[in-house]
């Protein structure tokens, strides 16, 4: 065995990024997720749906939505294509597990570290995000999963609690820029609310 050991680094680095976040809002990197993409092989869509449905406790995410099961969450990312998430502590090898589960019906790709995941919480988030991306946040319902662009960064945005909790996924290399954009919007939201 090699004498050396590797340690994991958050996408935002080791420094405490929470210090500048205005009171009443939360903006934190979520390090707890393992991710894998699942795309149905040609003509195997129905089998994939059935397996996915079994994994998620009875339903499959339709376009623009997510479904939360016991141990897995999945959201739609394209026709016959989903992103599946689970606890990284319990299922770091999620992709391998899913590969086994889906067998030859789907192409499974490990996505654990392809993404930075930021949890944004606080009051009236649509008034924050309306100045970040073009999605219709005021109409965004719980369990929505939309692809959108925040300051030139392509993102998946999940609505976990209406108006109060969004989860944003973006390419991991964009972590600092994305965090900066959202933090800036949180600060300006406070300033705007104060000015009005």
């Amino acid at each position: 065995m090699s004498d050396y050991r590797l340690t994991a680094t958050p996408a935002l680095g080791q420094e405490n990024s929470a210090k500048e976040v205005p009171d009443s809002f939360g903006l934190e990197e979520n390090l707890s997720l393992a991710l894998a993409s699942v795309a149905a092989r040609s003509t195997r869509g129905e089998e994939v749906s059935a397996i996915l449905s079994g994994l998620l406790g009875g339903s499959v995410p339709k376009a623009g939505t997510l479904v939360e099961g016991e141990d897995h969450v999945a959201f739609w990312i394209g026709p016959d294509q989903w992103m599946v998430a689970a606890s990284h502590d319990d299922r770091e090898l999620l992709a391998s597990e899913l590969k086994e589960r889906f067998g030859g019906t789907a192409s499974v790709t490990e996505q654990n570290d392809g993404w930075v995941c930021l949890d944004v919480t606080g009051p009236d988030l649509p008034t924050v995000f309306e100045r970040l991306a073009a999605a219709d946040f005021h109409a965004l319902e719980v369990n929505s999963a939309v692809r959108t662009v925040i300051e030139h960064v392509g993102c998946f945005l999940l609505c976990l609690e209406q108006d109060r909790h969004y989860r944003v996924f973006a390419g991991r290399s964009f972590a600092h820029s994305l965090h900066h954009a959202i933090l800036t919007a949180l600060k300006s939201t406070v300033a705007i609310r104060h000015a009005v």
Binding site: S37, A39, S42, Q81, S107, T109, Q111, G114, R172, S173
Partner: peptide, 15 residues
């Protein structure tokens, strides 16, 4: 479109 092939980017998943 008749080929059985799926694509996804993994640029940032691997250092």
């Amino acid at each position: 479109p008749q080929l059985d092939v799926q694509l996804i980017s993994t640029t940032e998943a691997w250092a």
